[in-house]
Design a protein around this nucleic acid. Structure first.
Lengths: 225, 225
DNA sequence: ATATGAAATATTGTAGACAATTTCCTGATG
DNA sequence: CATCAGGAAATTGTCTACAATATTTCATAT
């Protein structure tokens, strides 16, 4: 069969993504094909495809004849990602406002509810998945495959950035701000929804420590001083 | 060796991209692996990687167990692409203004000069490559790998959209407007450069025929009426 | 003792073969 | 005559083996 007892490529990608988001896989670490093939008990061919997918999501860098490494996003790149997210998600909200159904609102409210329970239970893994999933759900509802794909990319990169530059112990992207956005959309107040989204993203960005160099050598010198 | 007499994946991707941009490959056409492997005289494994790359650039859709097909972007998706391009390229110009060198300006002017000669000679292939290349060069100069990758994606999609919805015989993205943008950047006038870029993109979009359905069945009925 | 270089090891890149699925064609039946 | 079932051909998905490249290790010479 197509998936003979082995896990699918998508599942491998998600497992690696989660490991990175949970900081179990540090930036710069090499993801060796043979090693991963042994861990997931599949052939290297499938691992290669999973790594290629992770590369297009901006989570790993593949250097020819060298291998795949977990990305180390720079501060500037982090700021770029948030800048573009503000544009793209603004477009998403604008598109949703035009044609939102009752079923869409139900899905959104249900998602926010899931986020609340995950937060209450301190279920870290669920919190990470769901907080990104909310934004992805909005993109899906917008009905544009292009915007959905773009958001998928941006969410992945944001996860990595968050894993690297987060300084607070608690996870951001809290459900309350999500709930407010849903309410604004439900009320048909596009301008408000757009403003709330922008504010939300600025809030998330502000919780990161984006003050210049986190260079290895710099840290070493600081440690030895 | 790694490339034993065979062409690289990147070269395959570029050839396919060019075929699509030149309308030799129509939307909806299936790109069969065996067929392509025979054409380029490489193994299917390399073709598969090329197709995966084309998928992430938004040029083909891969349906599991079915194959790869040239995408058929909708009118809405086309508008989304241009909307996002305006945001991303605005960010690119902003980043460039901060730290543009004399060498950068030389490269830009050289590129525009190449565009002019290609236009003068009616070298269609070169015109297509160079007109997208200008925007890509700007992204490269901005120094952000993230923005560069995003622009690469957007340019590919724009090429497909142009191939599908262009109604004028002549290619858009003329070198004159590019030259103006370079001049504004050289003068350090960020606001003007940003405005020119926005105007340029609106101009390109306006030259497309984005008036609703280009459905096959619709065309058939119209033809039989 | 350190630096250089060459062999050994490990890892990635590619190709070809096999398995599974889908599609298309043929033929039987209501 | 249309429709649906069955089988053959074609196409995609996956695995294993081999070739090329990079890294490490160890010996040797300065």
């Amino acid at each position: 069969m197509t998936e003979q007892a082995g896990i699918s490529i998508q599942q491998i990608v998600e497992k690696v993504w989660l490991s990175i988001a949970e900081r179990r896989l540090r930036p710069g670490v090499q993801l060796k094909e043979g090693q991963m093939a042994a861990i997931f008990d599949v052939s290297r061919a499938r691992i290669r495809q999973a790594l290629a997918a992770l590369e297009r999501e901006g989570l790993v860098t593949i250097i020819p004849n060298r291998g795949a490494f977990v990305c180390q996003p720079t501060v500037d790149e982090a700021r770029d990602v948030f800048t573009i997210r503000r544009s793209v998600e603004g477009r998403v909200v604008a598109r949703i406002g035009a044609s939102v159904t009752k079923a869409d609102l139900t899905r959104l409210r249900s998602h926010v509810a899931q986020e609340r329970t995950a937060n209450a239970n301190d279920a870290t893994t669920d919190i990470i998945k769901l907080s990104g999933g909310f934004h992805l759900l909005l993109a899906e509802i917008s009905g544009s495959d292009f915007l959905f794909g773009m958001m998928r990319d941006l969410i992945s990169r944001t996860s990595l950035i968050t894993a690297v530059y987060r300084n607070t112990a608690r996870f951001n992207c809290g459900p309350d701000e999500h709930a407010e956005i849903v309410d604004a959309i439900a009320a048909g107040d596009l301008k408000k929804a757009s403003g709330l989204m922008e504010h939300h993203l600025e809030h998330v960005e502000s919780e990161l420590d984006l003050r210049e160099v986190r260079d290895m050598s710099h840290d070493l010198r600081a440690a030895l001083a």
